[in-house]
Write a protein that binds this DNA or RNA. Structure first.
Lengths: 112, 112
DNA sequence: AGTCGTTATGATCGTTCATCATAACGACAA
DNA sequence: TTGTCGTTATGATGAACGATCATAACGACT
């Protein structure tokens, strides 16, 4: 029995960024590739790529810079815009997480 | 472009109460019937009944007192436990809503 | 007895999300 | 120059879940 929540940014009724998607972007930044990030997130590459592509079109801004082929097959880095975007969202999410725990303890008691 | 969120109570990994479900319960209390509540929520009766039934089994507590047949076909009222439960959740949700608006304005600015 | 609006539940259908499969790319090594 | 390898990119398919349709049971009131 615990409080859970999700937080996302909506653009024209569509998800532009969410807690899960933020974690996906962090994984891409950490590993330098979408495929490695997908593996860590426990999802197929296809799904990861699709989510990122969705976000780009909805935000109207490039979030990743990709390179196909090459020595190690290529790779993917976050754009500066994406990094900034992500940093702000993370700070927001962190503040929210603390608030949720406090507010739940303060005024929620099970009748039973 | 706006922040959105959902809030729910989880029990063994399953949803026991959420913003949407809370609104459903309020509609039941207001109209005195599940069918009327379902219509207001824009969903089939079947769905409303199922969600309520789910919550009851997951919480291990009766949330509604129903009566079938009779003058106007019957009806459904909330149990005192459900009313208390709902009241607390609503207060929680209200506090959260205010916080979200503040925190978003405070530390989220679009790069662009 | 018959009607009516409700609760209760079985059965089916559609849509979306996850997964499988294939093509293109390019640095490096042989 | 040709082959290999791991990556990006995208088409095609499958499966799970939620929404919807359809039917039965109930009981006060006329």
């Amino acid at each position: 029995m615990q409080p859970r929540y999700n937080l996302w940014i909506e653009i024209d009724g569509q998800v532009g960024l969410s807690l899960w998607r933020a974690e996906l972007l962090r994984a891409v930044a950490r590993h330098g590739s979408i495929s490695a990030a997908a593996e860590q997130m426990g999802i197929p590459y296809r799904t990861a790529w699709q989510k990122i592509h969705e976000m780009e079109t909805r935000l109207g801004q490039k979030l990743v810079a990709t390179q196909t082929g090459g020595a190690h097959g290529g790779g993917t880095r976050l754009t500066p815009a994406a990094a900034l975007y992500l940093e702000q969202f993370d700070r927001f999410a962190h503040d929210l997480d603390r608030f949720i725990a406090e507010a739940f303890a303060a005024n929620f008691h099970l009748p039973d």
